[in-house]
């Protein structure tokens, strides 16, 4: 398994170079360094000299990919892309446009994202599996039919609707929790987490329950389930002991891969609930055209996604002894 993981990690290097290259190209094809300077220097009284100085300060006065005027390896090394990309692989994200250390910001803002995402994820998985098992148990009945209709209805509604609806009902009309905000640590923090977690879970009920139900139904039709029933096992025992375990593999495909991504937060939830996490950090960076932060977040997202895929593979081998990582 170790050889497999090492191989996957080595495969990740060209992928990350590619991701970085694409991010760089997309960003600089849309924004020239002059545009970036104007945005950061403000809209009033910006002189060409100030722009030139700003670019020089950040090394943006060099060519993007190829420096024809340089000699030898500097033709590639003395470019914006090379100078701003190599350090990423050493985990040095540099500084944002307001001079803040990006790595430290990421570390600070990761926790609010996790504080929302982790309970949403954990509670969500429990709720979705429970509902899906329930529908699978009552398959072919009115309960199942109406449950599926409800799921389709719920998954057709935008997350934004759940957010705004939840804020309207729970906070505005019923005054049960603050409508937005965040507080780190202590019981006081819990009342800020309750609504985003509930909204996060409820907004995922439709799609996840329906998906997991289909996994369970697929397993229920298999021979080993019939055998288990023939041996006189009760239906809950068949479902929880046998069907759930075997349906875990497709569930794991979707679930394990997102675990590392819980750290990067949710753009909509963090924005509407005023959570100072990485999702809102990314949005702010995009809005203010902070290339260094955008690049760092895309890079981090790619790294976490790759980690998620490796974890998924490992979890397969743990969930199903027939799977061997070689």
């Amino acid at each position: 398994m170790i050889a497999y993981i090492v191989r996957r990690l080595l495969h990740a290097v060209p992928i990350l170079v590619g991701v970085n290259l694409i991010t760089f190209a997309l960003f600089f094809f849309v924004n020239s360094p002059d545009d970036m300077a104007r945005i950061h220097l403000g809209v009033k009284r910006v002189t060409p000299e100030a722009i030139a100085k700003w670019k020089e300060d950040r090394g943006f006065n060099r060519p993007l990919f190829y420096n024809a005027a340089a000699a030898g390896a500097d033709k590639v090394a003395d470019t914006i892309f090379f100078r701003h990309s190599v350090r990423l692989f050493a985990g040095d994200f540099g500084r944002s446009e307001d001079g803040r250390d990006i790595r430290r910001e990421i570390f600070q803002r990761m926790w609010p994202s996790v504080a929302i995402a982790l309970p949403t994820f954990a509670v969500g998985i429990l709720v979705y599996i429970t509902f899906a098992m329930l529908l699978a148990f009552f398959r072919g009945t009115y309960l199942d039919a109406w449950g599926v209709v409800a799921c389709v209805g719920m998954m057709s509604v935008s997350t934004l609707f759940y957010v705004i609806g939840g804020q309207y009902l729970v906070s505005k009309l019923w005054h049960l929790v603050p409508i937005s905000g965040y507080d780190a640590g202590g019981l006081h923090a819990l009342k800020f987490l309750a609504l985003p977690v509930i909204v996060g879970v409820v907004s995922g009920v439709g799609s996840s329950t329906r998906l997991y139900r289909s996994f369970f139904l697929e397993e229920i039709g298999k021979d080993y389930v019939r055998t288990a029933r023939a041996k006189g096992l009760s239906e809950p025992r068949v479902l929880f002991r046998h069907v759930l375990g075997n349906a875990l593999i497709p569930i794991l495909t979707g679930v394990v891969v997102v675990i590392p991504l819980l750290f990067v937060g949710s753009l909509i939830m963090e924005s509407f609930f005023g959570i100072p996490g990485l999702g809102s950090y990314t949005i702010d960076a995009i809005t203010s055209q902070d290339f260094f932060v955008v690049r760092a977040m895309v890079f981090l997202g790619a790294v976490l996604y790759i980690v998620g895929l490796i974890l998924t593979d490992i979890s397969y081998s743990l969930a199903d002894p027939r799977v061997r990582l070689e």
Binding site: Q167, S171, K172, H175, P178, I179, S180, F272, F273, G274
Partner: peptide, 17 residues
Amino acid sequence: SREKEGIPYWNKFLQGY
């Protein structure tokens, strides 16, 4: 307090916060 969205901002004002 930072309020990025108008709806929570407005409702908190109406609630006296």
